[in-house]
Structure formats: structure tokens, C-alpha cells
């Protein structure tokens, strides 16, 4: 944390001194707000933690306010649309056997969606632009699916690695491939989200710096580009949250129903 911060201080100093510098990674820097150290472990409350708390607060506000009337208010309609959207997606992929995981998938979707969307607010921090956060979430999904698979099918869950209707000599090749593809799931899941978020925000930052750098005369072109990119980023923010949730449901479906 310290060395990074020092580097960014230097960049800021260069800027203040009249030089022009683009530091698109500055927005991802984590700094402590309330230092917490327990038994030598650094559990400090950082800007990332702050935005996680904001996500939960906004999600709770969105989900708990708005009433529960027979004729819904707009707010309530939005809540119910979100509910039906996730419930419908799960029903399509998993059938009714996955009802128990609905709260988990719903929480994942809401958390990632809000993290991505709040990241679009200027001067905010994008929680999901950090690989450790997305990887932790993906790992939870992976471990959950694996445990569910073994509880549901016992050792029979290992058949997931043996494609049916394939000649025996091909299995020598296919089983390792299946195993590798299974264990790369948390990687692909987490890197997809993290990379999308980081790339989008970095790009916005670069174009933003161009706007400032080119000034009132030439800055219009990158500004127009930024408007378009912002629209695209909102789409990506939603899409990545949806993809994460859908892949979670697909992995759970593999674990519960095992048709590969």
C-alpha cells in the first residue's frame, strides 16, 4: 500500500508543478480510512470497505423500502422486476430444485450490480475492479457448487469429469481437460468481472485526462467519446453482474442436476 501511494503522490506532485501526467490507475488505489490491526493482521477500514458498506446500505434501502402493496408503487415494481428477473433466470436454468440458492444468487447479483454501477459515479471506488474481491466471490461460488455436488451425488459427482458417449481411449485425454476446465472456473469467473471493470474505468480515466489535456479547443472529441463509453460502461456493468449470476446458476445446475 505504501509504495503505491508514494508513486501516486509523485504523480500528483508532477501535475501540481505544471507538468501533465496521466495516472489512470490512481482510481484503484486503496487507502486506509480507519487503521485496524488485530494480532498483526491488517484489517483496516479502507475506501474499498467504505464502498462495500455503501453498497449494502443502498441495497438494503432499495430492497426494504417501497412498501408491499397489491397495486405496486414504481419502487416496488422495480424490486419485483429484479426479483422476477433473477427468479426467472434461475428457473430457466436450474428448474425448481435450486430454490434454496435463490437468496445467494440474488445477493451476488445485487452486490455486483451495485458495485459496478456505483463505480460509474465520479470519484467513487469500484469494489469489483479488484481481482481479490472478484476472486473471493468466485471462490465462494466454486466451493459452494463443489460441496453441493458431493452432498447431492457423493463420489458420483466425479462422473462430471467423464463425458458420456466417448470411447475409452479418448477419456485419457478428455478427463484431464474436464478437470482443468472445472478448476479454472473461479479464475475465468473472477478475471472476467475484474478485467471488464478495470479496463472500462481505466479507459474512461484516460479519455478524461485527454479532455483536460486538450482543453477547451480540442477536448470535445474525447469528451464525445467519453459520453459514448459511459453508456457502454453502464451496459457492461449490468451485463457483468448478470453474467456472474448466470454462471453461478449454471455451476450450481451442474452440481445439482449433473447433466453435462
Amino acid at each position: 500500500m505504501a509504495s503505491e501511494a508514494a508513486a501516486h503522490k509523485a504523480a500528483e506532485a508532477a501535475e501540481a508543478a505544471g507538468g501533465f501526467s496521466i495516472d489512470p490507475m490512481h482510481q484503484f488505489v486503496i487507502h486506509r480510512i480507519i487503521p485496524v490491526k488485530i494480532g498483526g493482521l491488517d484489517l483496516s477500514f479502507t475506501n474499498s470497505s467504505l464502498w462495500m458498506v455503501i453498497i449494502v446500505a443502498l441495497a438494503a434501502l432499495f430492497l426494504l423500502a417501497g412498501g408491499r402493496r397489491v397495486v405496486p408503487t414504481r419502487w416496488q415494481s422495480l424490486k419485483e422486476m429484479t426479483y422476477e428477473f433473477i427468479a426467472g433466470t434461475m428457473r430457466d436454468i436450474l428448474g425448481d430444485s435450486g430454490r434454496a440458492f435463490f437468496p445467494f444468487v440474488f445477493t451476488l447479483f445485487i452486490f455486483i450490480l451495485l458495485a459496478n454501477m456505483l463505480g460509474m459515479v465520479p470519484y467513487s471506488f469500484t469494489v469489483t475492479s479488484h481481482i481479490i474481491v472478484t476472486f473471493a466471490l468466485a471462490l465462494v461460488v466454486f466451493v459452494l457448487a463443489t460441496i453441493v455436488g458431493f452432498i447431492k451425488h457423493g463420489a458420483g459427482y466425479l462422473k462430471l469429469f467423464v463425458p458420456s458417449g466417448v470411447p475409452a481411449y479418448m477419456l485419457v485425454l478428455l478427463v484431464p481437460i474436464e478437470i482443468i476446465s472445472y478448476f479454472t472456473r473461479p479464475m475465468s469467473l473472477s478475471v472476467r468481472l475484474f478485467a471488464n471493470m478495470m479496463a472500462g474505468h481505466t479507459m474512461l480515466k484516460v479519455f478524461g485526462a485527454f479532455v483536460v489535456g486538450l482543453g477547451i479547443i480540442g477536448g470535445w472529441a474525447p469528451l464525445a467519446m467519453m459520453v459514448a463509453l459511459s453508456g457502454l460502461e453502464v451496459l457492461v456493468a449490468f451485463l457483468q453482474a448478470y453474467v456472474f449470476a448466470v454462471l453461478t446458476v449454471i455451476y450450481l445446475n451442474d452440481a445439482i442436476n449433473m447433466h453435462h
Binding site: 503505491e4 486503496i30 491488517d42 484489517l43 479502507t46 452486490f111 481479490i132 473471493a136
Partner: peptide
């Protein structure tokens, strides 16, 4: 900043709490 391992524990910790 994403590869700054010193922040990992704090991020995981607060992610677990908030999530």
C-alpha cells in the same frame, strides 16, 4: 494497485462482513 497484496486481507475481511 490490484496486485498490492498488503490490501488483500482487509478487502477479503470487509467483503465477508458486508456480503
Amino acid at each position: 494497485p490490484q496486485l498490492d497484496f498488503s490490501t488483500y486481507l482487509s478487502q477479503i475481511f470487509w467483503l465477508a462482513i458486508t456480503f
